[in-house]
Write a protein that binds this DNA or RNA. Structure first.
Length: 209
DNA sequence: CATGGGATTGACT
DNA sequence: GTCAATCCCATGC
């Protein structure tokens, strides 16, 4: 069973946590460089880890826009991080793209990233924007027909097995299981989720022991 | 207007 | 494991 060709579009209409899961396996392309999404995180204005939690500001207004545009922001003063804005206009929600499996334009990615092995080119949210040449100037640009193109999974590619974990690098709402990774994929960022991590159902907060 | 804190990464111990 | 780099923006005085 290969993935439906419109999964990237249907994901935009969904609640952000479902969207984050559905976007795993889809593709991101920019100027001839592309990759398959292997790791995502969900952010929603109802929880304090989301930039939109503070409400509508000059920084966060992109998050409240209609779905299908990019939210690109600077992290730690250094890195540009790429998000897919989802949910209806007026809701601040986005899916952070955390890692890609490189597909095309590998030589150009290496040129931007340096000497890296293929698996290290896009194995992190700051790495993949550097590899694909995505900068802050692309904030609020459309993901269909824009400079960045969100596409369906590559034809014939089976749906990946997805593992679920808590989000990385945040200090608030740390318990939400809103991180989605392709099980066992070598391109996901660290810390890697174990292949046997939760794949469905409720979260077990504490080990039974 | 000053300040504090990041949705990170790479280098180093 | 620790830590510095570096800048935008939200907040508070």
């Amino acid at each position: 069973m290969s993935a439906p060709a419109d999964r990237h579009l249907r994901a935009l209409e969904r609640p952000v946590v479902e969207a984050a899961r559905m976007l795993v396996g889809c593709t991101i392309a920019h100027e001839g460089c592309s990759g398959v999404i292997v790791e995502t995180e969900a952010y929603h204005d109802s929880e304090p880890a989301c930039h939109a939690y503070v409400g509508l500001t000059a920084r966060t207004c992109t998050l409240f826009e209609a779905p299908g545009i990019a939210y690109v922001y600077r992290s730690y003063g250094i890195h540009a991080l790429l998000n897919v804005v989802v949910e209806p206009y007026g809701v601040g929600a986005a899916v952070l793209i955390r890692a890609l499996e490189p597909l095309a334009g590998l030589d150009e990615m290496r040129a931007r990233r340096g000497w890296e092995r293929s698996r290290d080119l896009c194995s992190g949210p700051g790495k993949l924007t550097q590899a694909l040449g995505i900068g802050l100037d692309l904030n609020a640009t459309p993901l269909a027909g824009g400079p960045i193109e969100l596409g369906p999974p590559p034809p014939g590619r089976p749906d990946p097995e997805i593992v679920v974990g808590t989000r990385i690098g945040i200090t608030r709402a740390v318990e939400l299981p809103w991180r989605f990774c392709v099980a066992g994929n070598r391109n996901v960022s660290r810390p890697r989720l174990p292949v046997r991590a939760l794949t469905a159902g409720p979260v077990r907060r504490h080990p039974t022991a």
